[in-house]
Design a protein around this nucleic acid. Structure first.
Length: 678
RNA sequence: GGGCUCGUAGCUCAGUGGUUAGAGCAGGGGACUCAUAAUCCCUUGGUCGUAGGUUCGACUCCUACCGAGCCUACCA
C-alpha cells in the first residue's frame, strides 16, 4: 500500500518579508515533497502564515491599518515569493482562520479536561497610554547591571553586556510604543502544566526515531533532566489573536496557535478538496513530517507533541530540523548586503540556481549551511550548465530531424548502471541527505559526458544510424538525470519533457529508456550565473545608510561605533554631576577563577582609601600589566554583590560591545589617585 | 560552567575499524572542437586540528586539549 504523507514547513511570521534563509527551509521541504510525489506517494504539503501576537498588533497600529489587512497583504507577498522559487504547497493558509480557531478550541478543551491548565499571577510592564502589556521587546531602558548601565536595551536582555533580566528590572524603562513610562501591573495568566506529560515526552523524544540523534540528546540534557516548567499560553487583552473561550479577556499566546495552524491549514485544504480531516491528523496510516529550523526546536519537540497527545491527534513521524543559513561565512548582514530578501534574489537570479545550491549542501543533520557566492557561481555553472545540460546540448541537435531510435543499442550498459543508481539516490533524498543525492547525480553526469566524448557523435555524419543510436543513448542518460533532479529542478524536468515529448511525472521513468520519440529543436535550458548579477543583487540588498555618503568618505574615522551604540538621551548638568569619577591606582589585579571575563582589582584612591572592583576585562588585559597604572573609577556607585564577591565601583573603559574591544581610560601623566573627574 | 555540531588537498565536501585517504571545483600539461570558453585524458596537492589511549590494524572508537559555530546557565 502506498504511503500517505502530510508535510509541513514552519509558518513564516507575518511581520516581515521572506529572506533567503526562509527560502532554504521552504526549498528543503519542497524538494522532499516533490520527491515523494515523484515516487508515487500521496504527499500533501501544508504551510501558511503565522499571524498573531503583539508584533503584528503594533505594526498594524503603526501603519494605521487593521491587523487583518496587514496579515493579508503579507500573506500575498509570501506566497508570491514562494511561487517565484517554485515552492508549491497544497494549501497556504493562515493562523488567523476559523479553522485554526476551531482546532485551538479542541485542543484547549482537551487540555482542560486533562487537568493541565492552571492560573498564575504574572507581573509585567504595562503601557497605560497604549493600553497594553508590553512584551520584552517593546520596552527599552537602561541595563540594570551596575557594571554596564547601557542605555536603550530591550526588556529581556542587554545586547551590550549580555545579561538577562526581567523587564521590570530595567532602569528608567520606556515603552517603545508610546514613549511613556510603563507601570508595573499584574495579570492572571493561564499555564499548561506540561510536566504532567514528562514521561510521555521522555519516551517520544528518545525513541522511535522521531528526532535527529543530536536533537534527542539536546532535549534530554536540557529539559527532560528536570521538571518541565509550566508554559504560559495566555496574554491579556489587547492582543491580536484568539480569545480563550472560557477565559474572557485572555488570548492564546502566538506560540500556542502557531503549530495548530498546520491543522487549520490542512482543514482548509480538506474542505476544498472534500478530504476527511481525521484521515490526515488522526490516522496511523498517515505519516506526519515537520520541517523546521533549529531555533524553534523547543516548541515542536516538547509542547507540540504534548498538545497533539492530549488532543488525541497523530504525533509527528519525524521533525526534520535544519541549521541556520550564513552568507559568505557570516551571519546575514544588512550592511554587507548579505541580508537578501527572497524578492530581491528573484529580481536578479534564477530560482533554479539557489534550489540546486541549497540541495548540494543540505544534509540530514542540523549543521548550519553557508552560502558562499563564489562557490555558488562555480558550482551552478560547472555542475548544471557544464555537466548536466551540456549532455543534451551536445546530442539533441543531431536527432532533431530523426527523433530517438526505436531501440537502445549503444550505451545500454551505462543506462542500466545509471538506472541502478536510482535507488541509492532515492534513499539519499528520503533521509534528507540531498547533498549526497546531488553528488551521485553529478557522478552519473560525468559518466554520461565521457560516453558522449568517446562515441563522438560529431564524427558520425557518414553513419546516420550510428549517430542516431549514440544520441538516443545520450539523451536517455540526460533524461535519467532530469528525473533524478526533478525534485530540485522542476523547471529542468519540464523542459526535458518538452524536448522529448514525454512529461516527467514519475521516478520510474528513469528505469526505462524513451524510444522512437520526436525531439524538438534544442534551446538553452539554463543560463550560466552571471557574477555581475550576483554583485548587483548584493548591492541592491545593502542598506542605503551604508552606501557611502560623501561626508562619511571624507572622515578618517568610521561612524560604525556611533551607529552601533547611538547617543543616549540628553541629561542635565546636575544629573551628570551625580556620577563621581575618580582617578585610582591599581594596587593589585588577579584572575577570578571560574569567571569568564572578570578580573578582580584592588584600587587605591589615595591614602588608606581602597576599593575592590571587578572588571570585565579578562583576556583583554593581563593582570600584571595593570598593576601600578592609573584608571578612572566610578566611585559613588552602590556596591554590587556578585558571585565572586562585592564590587565597590566600576572602572570605565571604551569599547565596541561584543567585539571584544575594550580600552581602559587613563588620565594624562601627573594625575593623582583620588582626584575627581569633572 | 554544561550541552550539541564541526575541524580531511587552495575552496566546497565525501569517507565511521582493514589494502598505498577520495570527489568536484581551482592550479599545471595535453586532446577535441558536437556543446552555453562547455567536454575528455593526464597531473600537482593532504603528517585526515593536537597529544595520548584501545586494537593485529584508526581519518573512523575512547580520553584530554586547541580552534570555530550554536544552544543553555551563570556572570560581567
Amino acid at each position: 500500500m502506498s504511503r500517505r504523507i502530510l508535510v509541513t514547513n514552519a509558518l513564516p511570521y507575518a511581520n516581515g518579508q521572506l529572506h533567503i534563509g526562509h527560502v532554504l527551509e521552504h526549498i528543503q521541504t519542497d524538494i522532499w515533497v516533490r520527491f515523494q510525489q515523484l515516487r508515487g506517494r500521496r504527499c500533501v504539503s501544508i504551510c501558511g502564515d503565522d499571524t498573531h501576537g503583539t508584533s503584528i498588533m503594533i505594526r498594524a497600529r503603526q501603519e494605521g491599518i487593521r491587523e487583518e489587512d496587514l496579515v493579508a497583504g503579507m500573506r500575498q507577498a509570501h506566497m508570491a515569493d514562494l511561487a517565484g522559487f517554485e515552492v508549491e504547497y497544497d494549501n497556504y493558509g493562515s493562523t488567523n482562520s476559523p479553522e485554526t480557531r476551531q482546532c485551538c478550541e479542541e485542543i484547549w478543551t482537551a487540555l482542560r479536561r486533562a487537568g493541565m491548565v492552571s492560573e498564575q499571577e504574572v507581573t509585567q510592564l504595562y503601557d497605560a497610554q497604549a493600553g497594553t502589556f508590553l512584551a520584552d521587546r517593546f520596552v527599552k531602558g537602561t541595563c540594570p547591571n551596575p557594571e554596564c548601565h547601557s542605555p536603550n536595551q530591550y526588556g529581556d536582555s542587554c545586547d551590550k553586556c549580555g545579561r538577562h533580566y526581567n523587564a521590570t528590572d530595567l532602569i528608567d524603562p520606556v515603552s517603545t510604543l508610546s514613549g511613556s513610562q510603563p507601570e508595573i501591573r499584574t495579570a492572571r495568566h493561564l499555564f499548561v502544566n506540561i510536566e504532567k506529560l514528562h514521561a510521555f515526552l521522555e519516551t517520544w523524544t528518545q525513541q522511535g526515531g522521531h528526532l535527529q540523534p543530536e536533537v534527542a540528546n539536546y532535549l534530554k540534557g536540557h529539559f527532560l533532566g528536570e521538571p518541565l516548567h509550566d508554559w504560559d499560553v495566555s496574554r491579556p487583552a489587547p492582543y491580536f489573536g484568539f480569545e480563550i473561550p472560557d477565559s474572557p479577556g485572555n488570548f492564546w499566546y502566538v506560540w500556542f496557535d502557531a503549530p495548530i495552524g498546520y491543522m487549520g491549514s490542512t482543514k482548509e485544504w480538506c474542505q476544498r478538496r472534500g478530504e476527511d480531516f481525521d484521515a490526515w491528523w488522526r490516522s496511523l496510516e498517515t505519516e506526519l513530517h515537520h520541517f523546521i529550523g533549529k531555533d524553534i526546536t523547543y516548541f515542536h519537540t516538547l509542547f507540540w507533541p504534548a498538545m497533539l497527545h492530549v488532543g488525541g491527534f497523530s504525533l509527528p513521524t519525524k521533525v526534520h530540523i535544519h541549521g541556520f543559513l550564513t552568507v559568505n561565512g557570516e551571519k546575514m548582514s544588512k550592511s554587507k548586503g548579505t541580508f537578501i530578501r527572497a524578492s530581491t534574489y528573484l529580481e536578479h537570479l534564477e530560482p533554479s540556481y539557489l534550489r540546486y545550491y541549497y540541495a548540494s549542501k543540505l544534509s540530514s543533520g542540523v549543521e548550519d549551511l553557508d552560502l558562499n557566492f563564489d562557490d555558488f557561481i562555480g558550482k551552478v555553472n560547472s555542475d548544471l550548465v557544464g555537466k548536466v545540460v551540456n549532455i543534451a546540448s551536445r546530442t539533441a541537435r543531431f536527432v532533431e530531424k530523426t527523433g530517438l531510435a526505436a531501440q537502445l543499442e549503444d550505451g545500454r550498459e551505462l543506462f542500466d548502471k545509471t538506472a541502478a543508481a536510482g535507488e541509492e539516490i532515492a534513499a539519499a533524498y528520503e533521509t534528507g541527505d540531498y547533498s549526497r543525492a546531488m553528488r551521485l547525480v553529478m557522478a552519473a553526469a560525468d559518466e554520461a559526458n565521457q560516453f558522449v566524448e568517446h562515441q563522438a557523435p560529431w564524427t558520425l555524419r557518414q553513419d546516420p544510424q550510428k549517430l542516431q543510436s549514440v544520441c538516443t543513448a545520450g539523451l536517455n542518460l540526460f533524461r535519467q538525470l532530469a528525473v533524478y533532479l526533478a525534485p530540485v529542478l522542476p523547471r529542468l524536468a519540464r523542459q526535458t519533457g518538452e524536448l522529448l515529448g514525454d512529461p516527467i511525472v514519475s521516478w520510474q521513468q528513469s528505469q526505462t529508456p524513451l524510444l522512437g520519440s520526436a525531439v524538438k529543436k534544442f534551446a538553452h535550458m539554463m543560463q550560466r550565473v552571471d557574477p555581475k548579477k550576483v554583485e548587483a543583487m548584493i548591492a541592491a540588498s545593502a542598506e542605503p545608510a551604508e552606501a557611502e555618503s560623501p561626508s562619511a568618505a571624507a572622515s578618517p574615522d568610521s561612524d560604525a561605533p556611533l551607529k552601533a551604540e547611538p547617543l543616549a538621551e540628553t541629561i542635565s548638568f546636575d544629573e551628570f554631576s551625580k556620577v563621581d569619577l575618580r582617578v585610582a591606582r591599581v594596587l593589585a589585579a588577579e584572575d577570578v577563577a571560574g569567571a569568564q571575563k572578570l578580573l578582580k582589582l584592588r584600587l587605591s584612591l589615595g591614602g588608606q582609601h581602597e576599593r575592590t572592583v571587578f572588571a570585565g576585562i579578562k583576556g583583554v588585559y593581563q593582570p600584571e600589566e595593570l598593576v601600578g597604572r592609573l584608571v578612572i573609577c566610578a566611585a559613588n556607585l552602590a556596591p554590587r554583590k556578585m558571585k565572586f564577591g562585592l564590587s565597590e565601583g566600576m572602572i570605565v573603559a571604551a569599547g565596541g560591545q561584543g567585539s571584544g574591544e575594550i580600552y581602559l581610560l587613563a588620565p594624562d601623566s601627573g594625575a593623582k589617585p583620588g582626584q575627581r573627574v569633572h
